[in-house]
């Protein structure tokens, strides 16, 4: 007899939702999400370049959209996500070396917790410099 089983749903192994969220795990997930966001963010850079290759009017229009409140909000988010992903990537490169400094329980937790803070600070720094450069 070949059709005796499969009348009941088979048990599944536990998945994400049964684990308590911890910083290293959250940062791993966020690294992936920021990567996907940056994938589409590259479009913004490409559009800006193509506008610069086009007419002055077209370029002014794109600059206008990027310089609007919504545009600035998106660009700030873009820069934060960019730094977050960059720091996360460097963290992963260090972890790839297998060093205790990166993989130890406390060390890895501290690095993970620092990620959003440091990336946000870097984004703020870039924008402060940009705004000052524009004023000068």
């Amino acid at each position: 007899m070949s059709k005796t089983t499969a009348t009941r749903a088979r048990p599944l192994s536990p998945h994400l939702q049964i684990y308590k969220p911890i910083p290293t795990m959250m940062m791993s997930i966020i690294h992936r999400i920021t990567g996907v966001a940056l994938y589409f963010g590259t479009l913004l850079v490409a559009i800006w370049l193509m506008a610069a290759a086009g007419t002055a009017e077209g370029f002014a229009r794109v600059q206008g959209i990027y310089g609007s409140w919504l545009g600035l909000f998106v660009l700030f988010g873009y820069s934060w996500v960019l730094f977050h992903h960059m720091l996360g990537g460097i963290r992963h490169l260090v972890m790839d070396t297998g060093s205790e400094a990166a993989l130890g329980k406390d060390e890895s937790r501290r690095a993970a917790v620092a990620m959003p803070v440091v990336s946000f600070a870097l984004a703020i720094l870039v924008w402060v410099v940009a705004i000052m450069a524009r004023g000068a």
């Binding site: 002055a56 990537g89 705004i131 450069a133 524009r134």
Partner: peptide, 24 residues
């Protein structure tokens, strides 16, 4: 590419910062 991206992206960010609001 991750390693190459670090200096390249930093350069690009610097370029963008330098060109904010610059004329065509």
């Amino acid at each position: 590419t991750a390693i190459a991206n670090v200096p390249l992206v930093l350069f690009m960010v610097g370029l963008m910062v330098a060109l904010v609001g610059a004329p065509y």
